[in-house]
Design a protein around this nucleic acid. Structure first.
Lengths: 341, 341
DNA sequence: CTGAAAGCGCTAACAG
DNA sequence: CTGTTAGCGCTTTCAG
């Protein structure tokens, strides 16, 4: 009942193993007579035969496997991305090997080696640093690879969210509420989204007729609540801004803590906007206004691009930017005239 | 630079491929002369050879792969578990295939088939229903398998948290604050933890000298905030309890919403305790008192048990219950004399 | 201790 | 359209 091979199927159908193999391969249309195909398929079904991927891999030099690298599975941003990737891969008979780099480039390189050892046919990488030697090396070899969310200096096909548009909408929203002194708690340097978002923030301010001031921007050392809290304290001490755009929702959580700690209220004293729309955003007090990113779709698109490149390595998988949506909750409100202490 | 085989290593070292293979196998002590071993190892290192797991698998009939099934990767409880599993597996040269069942038994069965097709050598299953035919069938075949957190009717080695102890501590804590009318918002039926926790809740009450009343217990249809909110409303309407033990943190989030909706304050009017200590617990308003579970350790232990059973299938991997810890935050406080409506 | 040979399960290339 | 043959990369007999 356990080890069922193509030979068993062939014997049951009264044909040669090679014929059975061909009959079961849907990509060979008309190469086998309908009658034979029918007999083989029936025999396989009755016996409950499933191909041994190992034997197949050895012969075809293809593993049916894609490496998926995320910075941190514990960060609620990534599980939906992984889910999107897995679903699409499985639809196409592939399996994703999932790993977390813990935001460590060296660990990422090790994991890529591991994936290579396992003969992954392609890679979905959400953990790339702007300067990521391992990723650049792999890209240089022409291995099918798609970056998600974070880009490298080297040009590699990617799927990102259109943060610039989302941030523009957020600033417009704040401007309409009367805010003109809008701060930004940026994420750590060395990751592309940090720069993208900071630039988009400045551009959006200008578009709204506001001249950005350097004193309005502080940097969090990581995309975590703790780092966000520390950074936000610095911003609040200067007492200039009435609204804050956080680099992402985790940083926004830290901002919320810093705001409360200082005896201020959100949104009465300070309005706050996050980015990502993580599940926890709606459970915060106050529920967080945030720029939603279609995380699962991010993963799904990435998987589709990799698969396309696996099927045809020369297919130039262009990069994609997915639309974002501003989710207005209760952390943003009209500016108070007296707020500029 | 790409396809490097054992033959290449053997040639470089001037030995037969079989010899090279033996020299690189650490489990064969003294079967190969130190000099030869040295030469082969050096050659392999210089060339950058890594074994092809496919060729090895085909020969050894072992895939180096373990299937890992969780109910829902988007539920923040599971990523740490997965991480614990992966870390231990990788330390031992194994790779985990990760999949979410979306709390759907049929989907779980499909995924198990997928894993079986990929020749997984063992399984870590965190998604078992109390009556789970697919899991039971697999267990019956003597395939190495360890359940995490959720148990089935069939007896299978498992790693769980000692919820009973944690809940006892939570009730003791509430009792010390003066609460005697303590409610419970249980999770959905059909999952073992739901029953375990409900029973532990009743036992803990009795231990604290309180006679549990049926009217104090309501059931949420899922372990989600939305379901918790609906269930909790029913409990609050009766107006009997001054404290609530939620079936887990997600349900607790829902309780928080229901409490606020009713114009009550936590903890002044109603104290609340969760279970799991998910990351979001400390970001809630008020920060949630909860029973912490060592999730990563849960996964790590499970992986160790499976590996042990893979190495020696007759090893009777006993079940393990990990200690819990009550994390007291701000959602629990002294009972108000006037609180009983 | 090492070499030779065989074969894991599958499919591509080559007949027929 | 189908059978034959061969070999993917590795390890494990079996000889020596």
């Amino acid at each position: 009942m356990d080890r069922l091979t193509i030979k068993d199927v062939a014997r049951a159908a009264g044909v040669h193993p090679a014929t059975a193999s061909r009959a079961l391969d849907p990509r060979l249309p008309g190469r086998i007579s309908p009658a034979t195909t029918e007999r083989v398929v029936r025999a396989a079904a009755e016996l409950g035969y499933v191909v041994d991927p190992v034997g197949r891999s050895l012969r075809t030099q293809r593993s049916g496997t894609v490496g998926v690298l995320v910075p941190d599975l514990l960060n609620p941003f990534y599980p939906p991305v992984v889910r999107g990737v897995q679903n699409v891969l499985r639809e196409h008979g592939f399996e994703g090997l999932i790993a977390s780099t813990d935001n460590d480039l060296r660990r990422g390189a090790e994991l890529l080696d591991l994936f290579r050892a396992r003969r992954c046919e392609g890679y979905v990488i959400a953990s790339a640093g702007r300067r990521d030697a391992a990723v650049a090396a792999l890209a240089g070899q022409g291995v099918p690879m798609v970056l998600v969310n974070r880009l490298t200096e080297v040009d590699v096909p990617s799927v990102t969210s259109d943060d610039a548009c989302g941030i523009r909408n957020a600033v417009t929203h704040l401007r309409a509420l009367g805010h003109t002194a809008i701060g930004h708690v940026a994420g750590p340097a060395g990751i592309s989204v940090t720069g993208t978002r900071a630039a988009a923030y400045r551009a959006a301010l200008r578009t709204a007729g506001i001249t950005p001031r350097p004193a309005w921007v502080v940097r969090a050392g990581q995309y975590t609540a703790a780092a966000g809290e520390v950074a936000c304290r610095g911003l609040l001490e200067r007492g200039e801004v009435t609204a804050i755009l956080a680099g992402n929702d985790m940083i926004a959580v830290g901002c919320l803590a810093a705001i409360a700690e200082r005896g201020l209220r959100c949104p009465q004293d300070v309005s706050l906007v996050g980015i990502n729309n993580m599940p926890l955003a709606e459970w915060l007090r106050p529920p967080l206004t945030t720029v939603a990113i279609a995380q699962e779709e991010l993963g799904a698109q990435a998987a589709r691009l990799v698969l396309a490149r696996i099927v045809d390595p020369r297919a130039d998988a262009g990069s994609v930017a997915l639309a974002t949506e501003l989710i207005v909750r209760e952390s943003t409100g009209p500016v108070r005239p007296a707020a500029r202490s």
